[in-house]
């Protein structure tokens, strides 16, 4: 094994997992460097959870190999389990126990004596803002508190690699940013985090590197900047004064930008990427587009030009924006 392979928290090649006729994971390759938050972004059913379950030694791959810190997930499952921790998509804490009992139980399983387990539980309850909820049954906690408890349960002993499967699905915005803060703190203490999400802004906020997964394969990967650059030189968004002119405006913009232009959810909105091979620089083309619209007698109420968002990246990669952004838990 080369030394670079052991610097990788995860290295998977050609992973396949089928359930009946459905190929949940279909020849997936991924490299995850240690010490970062690595996002796995994709719609529901893209294979994210199946990937995590294979890496966490819960599912045996049908084909391909996966190594976690150089240990094979099938042949050296025990060694893998010593390095990882899993926060599943569905609450992986016991509903019929109190918050504190959940942490004490897991701390005992990690080998803490009963005194040390109680101390560690209290320390984490405090660190996660759960001290007041300590004696309450887990099923009575709010979604946000339960998620935090779930994450606390995963770092009773500092894991080298933490799997967070859709940690903020179904949470309100405040609980969400609380979870994000925790993830940042955990990674700052040296844990590699593999985070799956169907929210683009979450990947944008947290992940140093992102793999976009669709139909069980990685269809793009890189840093946020690299992914954005791959989607085009830049994009424009236009809002028209008269929604009735949208089709006409779309035709004008398509010609100028040299790439498809898509209608927004807003009935008067349009957005499009500037083709990377377009001469004249993307800012110049944006100006030109505005001029063409004016000349065609189309009145514009809003116009913006900028680097593409991850939304646009996903759109460019899959041609299917709605599936991702409208998916619910």
């Amino acid at each position: 094994m080369t030394s670079s392979a052991t610097d990788l928290a995860v290295q998977a090649r050609g992973l396949v997992k089928t359930f009946g006729r459905q190929r949940a994971v279909d020849g997936l390759d991924i490299d995850i460097p240690a010490g970062i938050v690595h996002g796995v972004l994709g719609p529901n059913g893209a294979g994210k959870t199946t990937l995590i379950r294979m890496l966490a030694t819960l599912l045996r791959p049908d084909a391909g190999t996966a190594r976690v810190f150089g240990h094979d997930v099938v042949r050296e499952a025990e060694a893998v389990r010593r390095r990882i921790s899993l926060t599943g998509q569905f609450a992986s804490v016991d509903e019929d126990l109190t918050a504190r009992e959940n942490l004490v139980l897991l701390a005992r399983l990690h080998g803490h004596t009963s005194g040390a387990a109680r101390r560690r539980a209290d320390e984490l309850l405090e660190g996660f803002g759960l001290t007041e909820a300590a004696g309450r049954l887990t099923r009575q906690l709010s979604g946000g508190m339960r998620r935090r408890l779930d994450i606390a349960a995963s770092i009773l002993v500092r894991p080298d690699l933490l799997f967070l499967d859709e940690p903020t699905t179904g949470l309100d915005p405040r609980s969400r940013s609380h979870v994000w803060d925790l993830v940042r703190r955990i990674v700052a203490e040296g844990t590699t985090v593999l985070l799956t999400t169907q929210y683009l802004d979450e990947a944008d906020q947290l992940a140093h590197r992102i793999a976009v997964v669709d139909h069980g394969r990685v269809i793009a990967s890189g840093t946020r900047g690299e992914l954005k650059a791959s989607a085009g030189a830049g994009g424009v968004r236009v809002r028209l004064s008269d929604p009735g002119q949208r089709d006409k405006a779309r035709a004008v913009l398509t010609t100028v930008l040299g790439a498809p232009v898509h209608p927004d959810d807003d009935p008067a909105g349009l957005r499009g990427q500037i083709a990377a091979d377009r001469p004249g620089g993307s800012a110049g083309i944006a100006v030109e587009a505005l001029a063409h619209l004016a000349r065609a007698g189309i009145e514009v109420s809003d116009f913006s030009y900028g680097r593409p968002s991850l939304d646009e990246v996903f759109l460019a990669l899959t041609g299917n924006p709605a599936e991702l952004t409208e998916a619910t838990a």
Partner: peptide, 12 residues
């Protein structure tokens, strides 16, 4: 506070 703690001797 530090979230992570050093591991105990080994799992149960």
């Amino acid at each position: 506070t530090t979230l992570a703690a050093p591991p105990p001797g080994g799992p149960a």
